[in-house]
């Protein structure tokens, strides 16, 4: 069989990203939307690491590391906001949060 090329990684990460996008659009549970965002973030991280390996440039992997750092902080803040939303509305349904919609 032919070796793994960067195009394989491109297509795999695109599929993973699209699944994340569909998850954000389909779900109403705020926690599930958050998980879909994490999925999209990880697909792009993997693609960045793959390009860094194939281009032989370590700066890409350092960048992936920093994205993981920021994502960890973002998850902590996001889940704290989610707990606060639940405390006020007693639900994680995003359709209840429509005061800024129009």
């Amino acid at each position: 069989m032919s070796p793994i090329t960067i195009t394989d990684y491109l297509i795999f990460c695109t599929l993973l990203f699209v699944i994340g996008v569909v998850g954000v659009l389909v779900k109403r549970n705020a926690l599930a939307i958050f998980m879909s965002v994490e999925l999209m973030l990880n697909s792009i991280n993997l693609l960045l690491a793959a390009f860094s390996i194939y281009m032989n440039d370590p700066a890409g992997q350092v960048f992936v590391f920093f994205i993981m750092v920021v994502a960890a902080a973002e998850v902590a803040i996001g889940l704290a906001i989610l707990v606060m939303v639940y405390r006020y509305t007693h639900s994680v349904d995003i359709h209840l949060l429509n005061r800024l919609k129009w």
Binding site: I4, T7, I11, T14, I53, Y54, N56, P58, Q61
Partner: peptide
């Protein structure tokens, strides 16, 4: 996928031997 399949990327290294990771 349609856009990315047509790209012709020139890769400089073989990923099985790289040590940068």
């Amino acid at each position: 996928v349609g856009v990315l399949k047509q790209t012709d990327m020139v890769m400089t290294t073989d990923p099985t031997t790289t040590q940068i990771g």
